[in-house]
Amino acid sequence: SEEELEEFAKEVLRRGITIIVNGIRITEVEIFVKVLREILEKR
């Protein structure tokens, strides 16, 4: 749901943790923004 997305976004921003994806360091915020864009483009 959109509320869950908002909560996830807030949690990500609070933690600001960097994770490893395919050997490249990407912040969770960047991943969230990318996923959010993909979701919005599909609408």
Rank of each mutant, 00 (worst) to 15 (best):
E11Q: 12
V35N: 02
T18N: 07
I24G: 02
I19P: 02
E30D: 09
T27I: 06
S1F: 14
V29N: 01
G16N: 07
E30S: 13
I17V: 14
F32H: 01
L40P: 02
N22D: 07
R15A: 05
E7V: 07
F8M: 03
G23R: 07
R15S: 07
E28N: 11
E4F: 13
E38V: 10
E28R: 08
L5E: 02
E41T: 10
G23E: 02
L13W: 08
R25N: 08
I20S: 05
L5C: 14
I24F: 10
A9R: 03
N22K: 07
V35Q: 02
R25H: 10
A9N: 01
G16R: 07
G16C: 15
A9G: 02
V33I: 13
E6L: 15
V33H: 01
E30P: 05
G16Q: 07
A9H: 02
E4L: 13
E38C: 15
E41V: 07
V29K: 02
E4S: 11
G23N: 07
L36A: 00
F32G: 00
N22F: 10
F8R: 03
V21S: 02
I39M: 10
V29R: 02
G23D: 03
V33E: 00
R15Y: 07
I19G: 00
K10Y: 08
T27Y: 14
G16S: 08
R43V: 11
R25Q: 09
I31C: 08
I31P: 05
L36H: 01
I39V: 05
F32A: 03
V12F: 11
K42Q: 12
E2D: 13
S1Y: 13
A9K: 03
E41A: 14
L40A: 04
I17K: 07
V21D: 00
V35M: 12
T27Q: 05
L40G: 02
R43W: 15
E38P: 01
V29Y: 10
V21W: 15
L36Y: 03
R43P: 05
E38M: 13
V12S: 02
E28I: 06
L36I: 07
E38Q: 10
G16T: 04
N22A: 06
S1D: 07
E7C: 14
I39P: 00
E30H: 13
G23W: 15
R37A: 03
L40T: 03
R15K: 06
L36T: 02
F8N: 01
I24S: 04
I19Q: 00
R15L: 10
E6H: 13
S1I: 12
E11H: 08
R25P: 11
E2Q: 13
E7Q: 11
E6N: 08
E30C: 12
T27K: 05
F8P: 02
S1N: 09
G16E: 04
A9Q: 02
I39R: 05
N22M: 11
E2L: 15
L13I: 08
R14L: 06
F8D: 01
L13V: 01
N22L: 09
S1L: 14
T27V: 11
L40N: 02
R43H: 10
I39A: 05
R15Q: 05
E28M: 07
V29M: 05
E2V: 12
E38H: 12
A9T: 02
E38I: 12
L36V: 03
R15E: 02
N22R: 08
E3Y: 14
I17H: 09
G16H: 12
I17R: 07
K42A: 11
V29T: 03
V35H: 05
G23A: 11
R37N: 03
L5S: 01
E28Y: 10
K10P: 02
E11C: 15
T18H: 12
I17N: 05
T18C: 10
K34Y: 06
I26C: 08
I17D: 06
L5W: 10
T27P: 05
E2P: 12
V33N: 01
V29S: 06
V35E: 01
E4A: 12
I31R: 05
R43G: 06
E7F: 08
R37F: 05
E7P: 01
I39G: 04
V33K: 04
G23L: 13
T27W: 11
V12I: 12
K10S: 04
V35P: 00
E41R: 14
F8V: 02
E6Y: 15
K10I: 08
V35T: 05
R25D: 06
I20K: 06
A9W: 14
E7L: 09
T27S: 11
I26S: 04
E7S: 09
I24D: 03
G23K: 04
I20F: 08
V29L: 13
K34S: 07
E6P: 03
V33G: 01
E30R: 10
E2C: 15
R25W: 09
V33P: 00
N22C: 11
E4N: 08
N22H: 07
K34W: 13
E11Y: 06
V21I: 14
A9F: 11
V35I: 14
I39D: 01
L36M: 07
V29W: 15
K10Q: 06
K34L: 10
V12R: 03
R25I: 10
E30L: 12
E6K: 12
A9L: 13
V35A: 06
E4I: 12
V21H: 08
E3M: 11
L36W: 07
V33Y: 04
K42P: 04
L5V: 03
L36N: 00
R43N: 07
F32D: 00
S1W: 15
E11M: 12
R14S: 09
N22S: 04
G23F: 14
K34I: 07
E4P: 05
V35D: 00
E4Y: 13
T27N: 08
R37M: 09
K10L: 10
I24T: 08
I39T: 03
N22E: 04
I39Y: 12
E11W: 14
V35R: 05
V12C: 07
L36Q: 01
I24Q: 09
T18R: 13
R43T: 08
K34E: 04
R37Q: 05
F8E: 00
L36E: 01
L5Y: 05
V29P: 06
F8T: 01
E41Y: 11
V33S: 04
E30V: 11
V35Y: 14
